[in-house]
């Protein structure tokens, strides 16, 4: 599918509209459908850029959160009566904690309530990740008001150094594999972390020096080389999001 050039705020507004609809509808089915739709949009519209991977990352993080949250929801808390699926051993708690229990019977109702809450929270995380992977942080930075620009140095450093670090990690691990070192296990992290830390510090200093010597922050006002304009397709995307929000 063709990639539509859009205003950097468009996908963020659209995503927020979807997030609000998910919260309002409060049903896991709607949340899952939204994630599916957003996923399709991301796959067809994202560019081949480092930040485009943030959708995949948020998906992974969301699945972890869902698993941990469901586990805790099932094992700790107030029992919900219903059909018992399995019974876990109960951890005895002192008398002054009535009503709270750890372990015990896991009912279908308890599992489904923990799952459905989790799915909704995770869908919200994934949709924010999708917005991040559809928008260049550099372009987003340009349309944000001037006082946000104060964070500019930090954001530019983060967005340009972090993706480079991913390639650095691969490179360092490869070099150490060649030194015949084991690249798995906890000890290997230290061996990778030290050269990596040195490199990222050196890079950040280089970048800060480069930005400084190119006049960054000298003028309070910044002009725009390519002004970013709001177009009809932007309005169309935003309206579609708002419609979903209204209908939910």
């Amino acid at each position: 599918m063709k990639k539509i050039p859009l205003h950097p705020l468009t996908w963020w507004i659209w995503s927020f509209a979807i997030v609000i609809s998910i919260a309002r509808a409060n049903t896991p089915v709607f949340a899952l459908v939204s994630v599916g739709v957003v996923g399709l949009v991301v796959i067809s519209q994202r560019e081949d850029a480092p930040w485009a991977k943030s959708f995949n990352w948020s998906l992974k993080v969301a699945i972890w959160i869902l698993m941990i949250r469901t586990f805790i929801g099932v094992t700790i808390g107030v029992p919900i009566p219903g059909r018992t699926l399995l019974t876990l051993p109960r951890v005895p708690l002192p008398d002054w904690m009535p009503g709270v229990r750890i372990g015990g019977a896991v009912t279908l109702e308890r599992l489904s309530s923990a799952l459905s809450e989790g799915v909704i929270i995770c869908a919200i995380i994934v949709i924010c990740g999708a917005a991040a992977s559809l928008t260049s942080p550099h372009r987003l930075l340009r349309v944000l008001p001037i006082y946000v620009y104060e964070f500019g140095v930090a954001v530019v450093i983060a967005t340009s150094v972090v993706p480079q670090l991913v390639t650095s990690v691969a490179r360092i691990r490869q070099a150490q594999r060649l030194r015949g070192q084991n690249t798995k296990g906890f000890a290997s992290y230290r061996r990778v972390a030290i050269p990596l830390l040195e490199e990222s510090l050196a890079r950040s200093l280089d970048l800060a020096a480069a930005m400084d010597s190119r006049g960054y922050g000298v003028s309070r006002k910044r002009s725009r080389y390519r002004p970013i304009r709001w177009s009809i397709s932007d309005s169309a995307v935003v309206i579609s999001g708002l419609l979903v929000m209204g209908l939910s």
Binding site: R214, Y216, V218, S219, R222, S223, R224, Y225, R226
Partner: peptide, 13 residues
Amino acid sequence: EEELAFAMEALNL
């Protein structure tokens, strides 16, 4: 292109 314009944008040309 954007890299080239960066310093000029910073000086508000």
